[in-house]
Amino acid sequence: MSFILRDYQQKSSDSAVDFFNDKKKKHNAIMVLPTGSGKSLVIADIASRLEGHTLVFQPSKEILEQNFKKLCSYGILDCSIYSASFNSKEINRITFATIGSVKAHPELFTHFKNIIVDECHLVNPKEGMYKDFFESVNCKVLGLTATPYRLSSSQEFGAMLKFITRTRPKIFSDVIYQVQISTLLDQGFLSKLNYYDLRPTGWDTTNLRINTTGADYTDKSVVREYERIDFYSFLVSIVQRLMNPIQGGKRKGILVFTRFLKEAERLTYSIPGCAIVSGETPKATREMILKQFKAGEIPVVANVGVLTTGFDYPELDTIVMARPTMSLALYYQIVGRAIRPHRDKESGWIVDLCGNVKRFGKVEDLKLVEPKKGLWQVESRGRQLTNVYF
């Protein structure tokens, strides 16, 4: 191997190999590794060490391509891609795949011994492609994620974030390894973050209404609050200030998370060189915008509902959260875009315009705790965030 693992990466890889090799452990398990911890490197090391065939599921074409190339760059050649998106359906000792491409052909993978699932919080324990496939091939499954919880809601009780080893039914039963965000920050493996709570004058979260799932605010109530306080003008003024900060030096890039297209468009009218990326942006256009953003040719990117996972740009040092959310996963994913370290980045700035940091706390305050054996939960400064009703 042409790489050296950090201490926690080696421990996580060892734990995974022991898990797959332990014939007594029949249940599926997860490992929790924070954003920026080098999950793709850990997956590469695990897969290279396992005996027999290993299937690695990736949540999207972009992340699959990124992680497959990383695996190959480490000199591991007995690997392939089975994905219709790549027009490639090759099976090898290590096979990277998307669930949509293999769901109808489990018989091709019944000789596999191991399954690794990246972003395993996406696995629906009640029904769906993953569940059906796992039951068909009947082999041990290890999931990796930075956000080990799923939303559950019912008309009778309301909404709850459930830790994925505590759902009923459940796919994953055990946590075999985890490392805290604060630990990696203390060791210098993640970038220091500075948080700025800059809610506009008059901003009132009590005016926001919860949607029918209980998971987030309704579009209508958010728009009404934006218009009541002219949030659009406020957002423009904040981004203009960030482009010429009084202290802290010129920012490497400013990534603005908006909920609707209207705020993003307002920025493009007022900020020279600002570009928009949304779910409607053609892939080629998006890649061009992001390439120019990383090169410093585009100073600000306003993105609507995208770039929360799989966007790897360590130099990025400024995030503007221009949307309120009740989603802990979305909050963490947004902040995580600035948490990757880089030699030229002293710290990442998290500029919160909607009270999200107040709601959840700093991401380094998020802790995985196990108050009773097997009953894992996420807390922030002692406040329980999972397995409690909203």
Rank of each mutant, 00 (worst) to 15 (best):
F3R: 15
S13W: 05
A16W: 10
K24Q: 12
K24D: 15
K25A: 09
N28G: 02
A29H: 11
I30W: 02
A44L: 04
L50D: 07
E51Q: 12
F57Y: 12
S60A: 06
I63P: 00
E65P: 00
Q66C: 00
L71R: 04
C72Q: 15
G75F: 01
S80C: 06
S85K: 11
T95A: 05
F96R: 11
A97V: 08
T98A: 06
I99C: 09
A104W: 09
A104P: 00
H105M: 02
H111V: 02
F112I: 01
K113I: 05
I116Y: 09
L122T: 00
V123Q: 02
Y130V: 00
F133Q: 04
C139K: 10
P148T: 04
L151A: 13
L151E: 11
S152Q: 14
S154Y: 10
Q155E: 15
F157V: 09
K162V: 15
I164H: 03
T165N: 01
T167E: 08
D174P: 00
D174H: 10
I176L: 08
V179I: 15
Q180F: 04
I181V: 14
T183I: 01
L184R: 10
F189I: 10
F189G: 08
F189K: 12
F189S: 09
L190D: 05
S191V: 02
N194S: 11
R199M: 13
T205I: 14
R209D: 15
N211I: 09
Y217P: 06
V222A: 08
V222Y: 07
D230P: 05
D230C: 03
Y232L: 10
S233L: 04
L235P: 12
I238A: 01
N244M: 02
K250L: 12
K252F: 04
R259C: 01
K262V: 13
K262S: 13
P272S: 13
C274S: 12
P282N: 09
P282Y: 01
K283L: 11
K283H: 03
T285M: 12
T285S: 11
M288R: 14
I289W: 03
K291V: 03
K291E: 13
F293P: 03
G296F: 07
E297W: 08
I298K: 02
P299G: 08
V301Y: 10
N303G: 03
T308K: 09
T308G: 06
T309G: 03
F311I: 05
D312Y: 07
D317C: 08
T318A: 13
T318N: 14
V320E: 12
R323P: 01
T325H: 08
L330T: 15
I334F: 01
A338Y: 01
R340L: 03
R340Q: 08
H342Y: 07
R343Q: 11
D344F: 02
S347H: 13
S347Y: 14
L353M: 07
C354M: 12
D365K: 04
D365E: 15
L366M: 10
L368T: 14
L368K: 07
L368N: 12
G374R: 04
W376N: 05
V378E: 05
S380Y: 05
R381A: 09
G382C: 07
Q384N: 04
L385C: 07
N387L: 02
N387S: 09
Y389S: 02
F390Y: 10
